[in-house]
Design a protein around this nucleic acid. Structure first.
Length: 557
RNA sequence: GCACCUGUAGCUCAGCUGGAUAGAGCGCUGCCUUGCGGAGGCAGAGGUCGUAGGUUCGAAUCCUGCCAGGUGUACCA
């Protein structure tokens, strides 16, 4: 449609201009364009005159009904019923709304990034949900998506934790770890991390010991040591963290193709940084190896510290190279919290110096922090922050109050939707009560909307799947028109990596449906068949949309 | 200090590649209800779009200054 209008303009005014259609308020029409307003300046003409002559052409084409010019020069029009009928036909396929924007593209998405030996906090939950939704969108657009995860199994935080572990055990006694109950392991390690961090800051001797221990842990990897007492403590602890992460991911429905531990990327990063130092990309400074960001408007960061150990920066260089070599991706999307925005710019700028193509294809997208809405008290033995599991428990508590159950389908639907309905970037205020709420813009509301539609379909007797009609009535038409927006919304959400657009749309769609449903009987109505077909398409779109967000759409609730 | 992000209704947020009376949910007022899942529908109150300028026929949207909050800023991740 946009191209056809563009052609009409070409033949009228001999100007090549792209036309963008928008979806105006339903009272104006199905589609609108402000192209006449844009052309007014260039043509030195009154925008209403331009709009009138374009509208004249559109009317003559016979493909639209109700072509009108309104306001300062908007052209509004409605599509003909044959167009609507064929749109309804196309909704019969299960992948209605799918685009091909990422056909033949290899895309690697990296998100979640929890560190072994540390707690899995709410931010990891949030970033996992975002990463899943974005991966799903790209995949649905034809992309060959590889979801990967990255985490620090070596580094100072590990030194701190292991130090506190040996203090707790009274020495390097790996066999004593068996005394920690299985369901408390993760929390037990997280508590050790807190102790280790405090000791590092407050106790000079402990700090020195931790620095030595940190080096030893790198050495465990270099030597592939599984025998020494320290190594056994280390590997056991790492396994505990991995088990915990995997159980959590399984519960929330996330799965990764690969987990890159920093112990794997560190040697590659270190070697690369040292090699590129010879070529002048990185340089020595005060015993460390740095990249000077100031020439690029960034700041300087340390890639190898004076202990000779690679910092997070070098490990990220190693990760980037490893991903590049293993996948040769067309696009790499890295999703993290926004606290490392500037940091990542420096890392990518340094990589750009010797692997420009890799840097060019890498997109770092960031989100804010998860905060609890006011009034909800958090208690955690190991610190004043929100753990991933706390989010799950609080939402389950609220769901129990309202729906009388703690089922994962509604609870996860509630949390994921609450995380995704806002634009990615600013902090998200998580309100557990509102998230599980059955009214308003919530996950369970949409799940309910889907279940209700399915329940209506179950009551239909005739063959509604291929129903036809000569004319849609007003309610049917508004629902159908709203449904035709789905593909456009998915396309925009994919292009902009903005899942919240899907949320907004699904909610508006449900509202449109409720208006239709309020006024139109379906079962045992003369128009049962055609309305049933519309309800079927509606249920299908809700399900597709929710699934893209990583949310289940159960048939019953 | 510098850099980046954010500031829209009481609260939580859409809208931001400039365009039609600035939208939604929650909360608040009123109405609808013998009904296919009412977990709904209709109507209403509520807004100097942080602020001062600028660009434009037109600015919540673009530019600049300022104010407020957040984050980052050399050996943590």
């Amino acid at each position: 449609m946009e191209e056809k209008i563009s052609q009409e303009i070409k033949s009228l005014f001999d100007i090549d201009v792209p036309v963008q259609l928008t979806r105006p308020e339903p009272e104006f029409g199905d589609y609108a364009t402000n192209i006449a307003l844009q052309l007014a300046g260039r043509l030195q003409k009154n925008p209403r005159e331009i709009a009138d002559s374009i509208a004249e052409r559109l009317r003559a084409s016979g493909e639209y009904s109700d072509v009108s010019v309104a306001g300062p020069g908007f052209i509004n029009f409605r599509v003909s019923k044959s167009v609507l009928q064929s749109e309804l036909e196309s909704m019969s396929v299960p992948d209605y709304g799918r685009s091909h924007a990422f056909d033949d593209k290899v895309v690697i998405t990296e998100y979640s990034d929890p560190n072994p030996f540390k707690v899995l906090h709410a931010g990891h939950f949030y970033t996992s949900v975002i990463g899943d939704a974005i991966s799903n969108l790209i995949e649905w657009a034809g992309g060959d998506v590889h979801r990967v995860n990255f985490g620090g199994d070596v580094g100072l935080h590990v030194g701190k934790t292991i130090w506190a572990v040996t203090q707790q055990l009274g020495g390097e006694y790996p066999e004593k770890l068996a005394d920690v109950p299985e369901d408390e392991r993760s929390e037990w390690l997280a508590a050790r991390y807190v102790e280790g961090t405090r000791a590092y800051e407050e106790n000079e001797q402990a700090k020195a010991d931790i620095i030595v221990l940190n080096k030893k842990i790198y050495q465990i990897h270099t030597d592939n040591d599984h025998e020494s007492a320290l190594a056994q403590i280390y590997w056991t602890g790492r396994e505990w963290s991995y088990d915990y992460f995997n159980a959590f991911y399984k519960r929330i429905g996330t799965s990764f193709e690969k987990y890159y531990p920093e112990s794997e990327t560190a040697p590659i990063g270190l070697a690369t940084v040292l090699e590129q130092k010879e070529k002048g990309v990185y340089e020595d400074s005060e015993g460390a190896v740095i990249f000077k960001g100031e020439p690029y408007g960034l700041h300087t960061r340390v890639f190898v510290n004076k202990e000779g150990l690679p910092t997070y920066e070098a490990k990220d260089v190693g990760l980037s190279i490893k991903k590049w070599e293993e996948y040769h991706f067309d696009e790499s999307v890295i999703i993290t919290g926004n606290d490392i925005t500037e940091y990542m710019k420096v890392v990518l700028k340094s990589i750009e110096q010797f692997q420009p193509e890799l840097a060019k294809r890498t997109l770092h997208m960031t989100h804010g922090n998860v905060k609890l809405a006011g009034g909800v008290k958090m208690s955690s033995r190991i610190g004043n922050f929100l753990r991933a599991v706390d989010v799950l428990n609080i939402a389950a508590d609220e769901n129990e109050k309202i729906q009388g159950n703690r089922d994962d389908a509604p609870v996860l639907g509630a949390i994921k939707y609450a995380f995704l309905k806002n634009r990615i970037g600013p902090d998200v205020i998580f309100d557990p009560h509102e998230s599980v709420g059955l009214q308003g813009n919530s996950g369970p509301y949409l799940q309910y909307a889907h279940a209700r539609a399915v329940s209506i379909l179950a009551k239909l007797s005739g063959d509604y799947l291929n129903a036809q009609t000569d004319e849609f009535d007003a309610g049917e038409r508004s629902l159908l028109v709203k449904m035709t927006e789905f593909g456009d919304v998915i396309e925009a959400a994919t292009k902009q990596l903005a899942p919240h657009l899907v949320c907004t749309y699904l909610y508006e769609l449900a509202q449109t449906f409720n208006r239709f449903y309020e006024a139109s009987r379906i079962v045992d109505d003369p128009r049962e068949a055609i309305r049933g077909r519309l309800v079927g398409a509606y249920a299908g779109i809700l399900k597709s949309g929710l699934n893209l967000l990583g949310i289940q759409a159960p048939d019953h609730m």
